[in-house]
Amino acid sequence: MDIPLRTHVTTQDRARPLRYSRTWDTGVSSIAEARDAVAALLARARPRPGRRPLQDAQLVVSELVTNAAKHAPGPCALRLELLPDATALRISVTDTSGEPPRRRPPDPRRVGGHGLHLVGMLSRGLDVTWLTRGKRVTATVSLGPATA
C-alpha cells in the first residue's frame, strides 16, 4: 500500500512533520524506490537539507531495507518521518524476522556485511522494537545545517 507524501495541517494551521510510508506484501521489490522516497520527502522540506545529509539518509534507508529484504521473508514496511524544522529524518523498517540485527566483525576483505556499521556511523543509533510478528528497526539521521 502506498501513502503519498503530504503535509498534515493541524487546527492551528501549523505544518506537522512530513511523512512517507510504504509496505511490501512479499518483500521489497526495489531498494531504489526507498532511496527515491527519501529524496522526494527531503525535497519538500523547508529548509531543505544539503546534498551530504540527503546522501547519508539514502544510504541508511538502502542498508536497512536491504537487510529486511535479505534476512526477513515476507512483508515489510518503510516509514520516513521528517522531524520538526527539518533537523533529522527518522527511518523505520518493519520486517517479519525475529532475529535482531547483528553487526559482523569488521573485515575489509569481505564483500558485504558492512551495512550496520555504516548505519551506526551515519545515524544517532539503531533502535529495535520487538513486535508480535517481527521487529521494527529505527535510525535517526541528522540533516545538519539546512540551506534555503
Results as ranks from 00 to 15, higher is better:
68 A>W: 08
103 R>E: 05
138 T>Y: 09
39 A>V: 10
110 R>C: 06
86 A>M: 04
90 R>A: 15
89 L>K: 12
70 K>W: 00
92 S>I: 03
139 A>D: 03
43 A>L: 12
110 R>E: 12
53 P>K: 09
60 V>H: 12
136 R>T: 15
107 D>T: 12
83 L>W: 13
104 R>Y: 14
112 G>F: 15
134 G>Q: 13
43 A>K: 04
96 T>Y: 03
132 T>H: 14
95 D>S: 03
115 G>H: 07
126 L>I: 15
123 S>H: 01
134 G>P: 09
64 L>N: 10
136 R>F: 01
57 A>E: 00
37 A>N: 10
57 A>W: 02
133 R>K: 09
63 E>I: 06
63 E>P: 15
55 Q>P: 00
54 L>A: 05
139 A>S: 13
67 N>P: 11
95 D>P: 02
143 L>M: 02
143 L>D: 00
108 P>G: 02
63 E>Y: 09
69 A>L: 02
119 V>S: 11
128 V>S: 10
76 C>S: 15
32 A>L: 10
147 T>V: 13
109 R>C: 02
37 A>R: 13
86 A>P: 01
96 T>H: 11
73 P>Y: 06
131 L>T: 15
113 G>W: 05
109 R>I: 02
52 R>N: 02
113 G>L: 03
29 S>W: 08
145 P>L: 07
103 R>W: 00
81 E>Y: 00
57 A>D: 05
111 V>W: 08
104 R>N: 12
119 V>L: 04
62 S>W: 11
90 R>E: 14
57 A>K: 01
64 L>G: 08
95 D>C: 04
30 S>P: 11
117 H>R: 13
91 I>P: 04
46 R>I: 07
71 H>A: 05
45 A>R: 05
50 G>N: 06
126 L>Y: 11
37 A>K: 10
80 L>A: 04
79 R>C: 06
49 P>F: 09
121 M>H: 12
116 L>H: 06
105 P>K: 09
118 L>G: 03
130 W>D: 14
67 N>H: 13
139 A>V: 03
92 S>L: 06
117 H>C: 01
32 A>F: 07
62 S>D: 09
50 G>C: 00
92 S>Y: 01
92 S>Q: 14
30 S>I: 07
68 A>I: 06
31 I>M: 08
59 L>K: 06
146 A>H: 08
41 L>G: 03
102 R>V: 15
113 G>S: 05
